[in-house]
């Protein structure tokens, strides 16, 4: 059972109510991003995804899943767990945006300042992260991603098919428009 050259990877973990969603729930195109908050390629894609959602506001929704590559990015796991802690207080996207807008400030001291800026209870949230309250969730996203063919960060799935193109705005617009017209 040798697999032929290049089989396109497909998402195996369907969207659930636990997912973090930005955009209309009935959008015809769903982008799932597997990302690492410390990855500079994810950081480079972040404003493009933002603009994509603005330009295709009725067409596309974005779902974010955690894929920290901790052996390369020492702050990525904690950043992910902190985002999930913020999510439990209804502030996932605020935290997500702060993290990508402050990628050079992800060390614990600056991260706490970010949490505070968002009006979240820093000590309480840090204590939850310290005892690993969100580790399982992050791990679940990671394992689902690796089983779906995530091969680095960022990896996007556009309507369940892995996007192997670029992350510049024109590439993303083309991918979304193609999926919307498929």
């Amino acid at each position: 059972m040798t697999t032929p050259l290049q089989v396109t990877a497909r998402l195996r973990e369907p969207v659930t109510i636990e997912d973090h969603v930005r955009g209309p729930s009935n959008a015809p195109v769903t982008i799932i991003e597997y990302g690492d908050f410390q990855c500079r390629f994810c950081g480079a894609a972040y404003p493009n995804l933002h603009e994509l959602l603005r330009q295709r506001a009725d067409t596309v929704r974005l779902i974010y899943r955690y894929f920290p590559i901790a052996n390369v990015h020492p702050y990525a796991e904690r950043a992910a767990e902190t985002a999930e802690a913020a999510a439990s207080r209804g502030k996932f996207w605020e935290m997500h945006d702060w993290l990508y807008e402050h990628q050079d400030q992800l060390d614990p001291v600056h991260l706490s300042l970010g949490v505070e800026q968002l009006g979240l209870p820093t000590d309480e949230l840090n204590a939850e992260v310290e005892r690993g309250a969100y580790a399982d969730r992050v791990r679940r996203d990671f394992v689902g991603g690796i089983r779906s063919g995530v091969n680095g960060t960022p990896t996007l799935f556009v309507n369940d098919v892995r996007h192997d193109g670029g992350y510049d705005l024109p590439d993303l617009l083309a991918a979304v428009d193609a999926a919307a017209n498929a």
């Binding site: 040798t2 697999t3 050259l5 290049q6 990877a9 690796i146 091969n151």
Partner: peptide, 23 residues
């Protein structure tokens, strides 16, 4: 049990490996 040749510039990920390990 399983083998896979990828394009040199494409990271094949690990999904195929885990499918083979499941089998």
């Amino acid at each position: 049990a399983w083998s896979y040749l990828s394009k040199p510039d494409v990271n094949p990920g690990a999904d195929g490996i885990f499918d083979a390990l499941d089998n």
